[in-house]
Amino acid sequence: MGVNKILTLGAALVLTAVTTASAASLTGAGSSFVYPLFTKVFSEYGKSGDSVNYQSVGSGAGQNQLKGRVVDFGATDVPIPAADVDGYPGKVLTIPVAMGAVVISYNIPGVDSNLKFNGKVLADIYLGKIKLWNDPALVKLNAGVKLPALPITVAHRSDGSGTTGVFTDYLSKVSSEWKTKVGSATSVQWPTGLGAKGTDGVSGVVKSTPGAIGYIELTYALNNKIDFGLVQNRTGAYIKPTIAGVQSAAANVVIPTSGIISLTNAGGASTYPISTFSYAIFYQDQKYGNRTADQAKALKKMLNYVVTTGQDYSEALYYAPLPSAAQGRARAIIGTMTYGGKSF
């Protein structure tokens, strides 16, 4: 082997060693809603050298793990409640990272995926007031559909869940009775039904239980071949959950400087009414505990990837890519990160 080839090989080995040594390992936890997308995005991102270990434990647990500084970032489908913000040991930033639809899934033998629901009917089902699939209220919405006299088994999340937060936020907007009796939160006192952990758990209950109804993310319904229905929006139209319906919801709101806004029951003739952003949460000042400046830079780099290049993987997994306004807002917020009070 010639001298030049030896030197070239030696340089390559040194470069590989340096790259390996400088590779960062980041951890995150939270939303199961965004888990299928994050799995793909972080797999692709890992090809650059840095790795991201994300645990789908639910939005509530993700918020708690960030609060305890156990993870580099959390993921949640609803923002940290205002009453809880002061309990965090530092200022938390929130950025949109994904958009998707919460669908009304069901298992009714002989009925396909075109069943219609409106806000009042959904609230009454989850309040325990509508108990049978052939209830007059459902029959009226679904003329021509032969609904069986089958008991409705309500499935809901048993863990702290951003998907629950989104669904109950929607119900609180369309039903004053729901707002008064139950309200909106990641965990609520359910009037009826069976609890299951995670979106996988709710999907499992619905798929295995004739007569069941549940609220799950669109990609879980499609991947598990679970029927789901149309939901009436503010204009009176019954809309099937699609990427276009979610994009319409985002197009009809203005994203504030905080990066946080609800998409449920948004305006627009083609808007799917149970649409949502999913968010990443992290500390503005990254100098805490034993964190190094390199860890802070790695987190910043990864977050910028998620809200830009990472959006390219959204549609194939039935998420809606962030619109340019949301991407711009997210990048501006990421840009305010500091380390020891200094920008980096």
Rank of each mutant, 00 (worst) to 15 (best):
L171S: 09
L171Y: 06
L171N: 08
S172A: 10
K173T: 07
V174C: 13
V174T: 13
S175L: 12
S176R: 02
S176Y: 00
S176E: 14
K179Y: 00
T180N: 06
K181S: 04
K181T: 01
V182Q: 05
V182F: 10
G183S: 07
G183F: 07
S184A: 15
S184K: 12
T186W: 02
T186D: 14
S187Q: 15
S187D: 15
V188T: 09
V188M: 07
Q189V: 10
Q189C: 01
Q189D: 14
P191S: 02
T192V: 15
G193I: 11
L194N: 15
A196C: 12
A196I: 12
G198V: 05
G198I: 00
T199N: 15
T199F: 02
D200E: 14
G201I: 03
V202A: 08
S203G: 07
S203C: 03
G204T: 14
G204Y: 05
G204H: 11
G204A: 12
V205Q: 11
V205K: 09
V206L: 05
V206D: 02
V206T: 05
K207E: 04
K207I: 01
S208I: 03
S208P: 14
S208E: 15
T209W: 08
T209I: 02
T209L: 04
T209V: 06
P210E: 00
P210L: 00
G211E: 07
A212T: 09
A212R: 08
I213K: 12
I213A: 07
G214R: 08
G214I: 03
Y215G: 13
Y215R: 01
Y215V: 11
E217L: 00
E217D: 13
A221T: 08
A221C: 12
A221Q: 08
L222I: 11
L222S: 00
N223K: 05
N223Q: 09
N223M: 11
N224D: 11
K225A: 10
K225F: 04
K225E: 03
K225Y: 01
I226A: 00
I226W: 01
I226C: 01
I226R: 11
D227P: 15
D227E: 07
D227Q: 14
G229V: 05
G229H: 05
G229Y: 01
L230P: 15
V231L: 06
V231E: 03
Q232W: 04
Q232D: 12
Q232N: 08
N233C: 09
N233L: 03
